[in-house]
Amino acid sequence: MSSRDLVLGRLRAALAAGDPAPVEVPRDYRSEGTLDLDRLVERLTDYRAHVHRVPEAAVADTIADILPAGATIVVPPGLPPAWLPSTVTALVDEGLDNGRIGAADGVVTGAAVAVAETGTVVLDGSPDQGRRVLSLLPDRHVCVLRADQVVATVPQALARLSPHRPLTWISGPSATSDIELNRVEGVHGPRNLHIILLL
């Protein structure tokens, strides 16, 4: 008998005695909320992300202010070139090795969805967001977000996302609560998170 059959057999035997009744899940929690961009900004800031609200035409200048002149950044292949300032060197990820990604001063990506209530942005690996490793190794992550990508609640975000893409939910910079249960920024992920929210 395979272990699969053994485990499944045990579970069926465990349930056979009581034959539990089908369970109805009450879904009377809030699935939607009122969209409030100010709330998103407040929640992002509360978890130490830096938020910049600018028109799309000003993205390149904003990034030029965030990253020191001469910095090297990595970018996913589908990032709009107009977002990149001339003050930085951008390496487009067409199979960059981890060493080069880790040595970069920063990474610029788009986003898939953001949740206002929790101050979360979600990346789904689309061409303007790239492979997961891109937004992981550099110490500075600049994420450009369009207002129409923001939803109010977690249920709304899940409804927009595809489970068949690799998803990374990001709420503030890397942090730990492991030292005396205080949230401290900065362990393994990017220690600086900048969100550019387009007006």
């Binding site: 929640r43 978890y47 949740v115 209530e117 929790t118 101050g119 979360t120 690996g125 492979r131 997961r132 490793v133 489970p163 068949h164 893409r165 690799p166 998803l167 990374t168 939910w169 990001i170 709420s171 503030g172 910079p173 890397s174 942090a175 949230r183 992920g189």
Partner: peptide
Amino acid sequence: GERMNPYTSMWTGVTPGDG
């Protein structure tokens, strides 16, 4: 005690070229 923890990863099987 956070509204959301800093990172949540979700994956389905293997994604070619990523991970």
